[in-house]
Design a protein around this nucleic acid. Sequence first.
RNA 1: GGCGACGUAGCCAAGUGGCAAGGCAGAGGCCUGCAAAGCCUUUAUCCCCGGUUCGAAUCCGGGCGUCGCCUCCA
Length: 501
Amino acid sequence: MTIRVYNTLSRSKEDFVPREPGVVAMYVCGPTVYNHIHIGNARTFLTFDVIRRYLTFRGFDVRFVQNITDVDDKIIARAAEEGRPPAELAAEYTLAFRAAMDALGVERPTVQPKATETIPGMIEMTERLIKTGHAYVVDGDVYFSVRSFPGYGKLSGRNIDDLESGARVDVDERKQDPLDFALWKAAKPGEPHWPSPWGEGRPGWHLECSVMSEQELGLPFDIHGGGSDLVFPHHENEIAQSEAATGTQFARYWLHGGMLQINSEKMSKSLGNFTLLKDVLAAYPAPVLRLLMLQTHYRSPLDFSSDRLDDATRSYERLVTPLRNLEWAKRNRAVPTEQPAHADEIAAIEAAPEAARTAFAAAMDDDFNTAGALAALFDLVRALNGFLESHGIGDNARYAGRLDAAADTMRQLLGVLGVRIDTSSYTAEYPPLVLEIARDLAGYDGVDTRAAVEALLAARTVARNERNWAAADAVRDGLASLGLTVEDTAAGSRVVHRPAG
RNA sequence: GGCGACGUAGCCAAGUGGCAAGGCAGAGGCCUGCAAAGCCUUUAUCCCCGGUUCGAAUCCGGGCGUCGCCUCCA
């Protein structure tokens, strides 16, 4: 079965056929490093991380290039505000960006070039464009002439005349056409600058993507990705530059991610709802945020709120629980009933992983439908839970192999979505306050939190056996006050620490 | 003004011609001392009006509503 992708260029879903069988050349616009990235940025990067992972899962060798824009008006402005060198600011936020991506579980690009390290290539492309009559020099600035490129507007579905009729295009007398954009900007005093045939200056924003993608991938490469707000003018301009300079097609499939909103409003500084990724990750585990985002198709708008994060936290728990319960059952050899499973029950649990794989791939093949893929996984969760509920691993762990197969499939497919599953939450570190509770309720006077929890559970078991519900519930309530939930299972009691929310 | 999306249950959301996925929340039941976790059952005139079709959430036309882009934006 072929993968189908929605191509902005054709405004339709197309069969995905890479230029070279088995190899995908992919470029995704990266951040301008003038601040910590916000969750809108994060959504886009997460989207293309999943697309990359899925293509890899489907057997493609993916070469993934992402730029870092480390010279730009916004960087210069912010550095001036803070009274320090732009390069220092850019370096700091480059590191912060990489750290945030690591924390989100986004795989590192194959290559991650910086704009400041691509200056010679950008000068070279600008020279080519001037020679071929697609660009002109004015006072040390170089502009691309949009009228010189007949295909201008083909990506965003606009034409030059429509665009000019809009009143919002700035008028610069020195430009031949208001839509012409800068390839090279003459440096003002105090700005970063590099020598060029047109004097000291710095590159325009659109140019780096054209140059880097050609250098690292060659033209035409397979997938160009970014947020849908980049369709115009950024990606339109990339196409114009690259195709005018090379005479060949630039990118074959254009994929654009939908915008993220906060509480149904556009994220903006003036509304005060500018949420940074690092702040979200400080409050919620990365897999929860990932799950929230993957429950909506990547091209649809996504409304972000803390309520939705809380919902996603419970969804995440639903994924973790069966894996945790299986581990617990294997460790404790718990057998809920002596009743052996019927042949049809065994057939069902044996068929479940393959059914999930098939449904997962069918959803992902259809323009990376992660919400559908998650539904396949939740169906597998139900199959696992159901079997575990009625038969556990069986006597002598006779069913463990079949259950492991289902669990392994879950882990693998969740891995394709980049969702890390942490089943260790019932063996995690416990807060020091359990020592106090254990001293009061279980007579424990040591300093080992885990032993303290064991002592509390043992005390509760004794109390329950004596039908002393008040004492038993005191233990449970005490642990609950620390965010620890007591669960009674066929193999005894355990404590589960759940993420916030 | 130009271009383009979207409107599916209380909330989120998949589904582009053939009995409406999934998650969260709710209800009932099972299990439990009570819980938790889990299981079972349950919750939809698919924004409105026309049209095409044996058959429409899905295609076409109109209307209403929400949103994005057109300026730096992921």
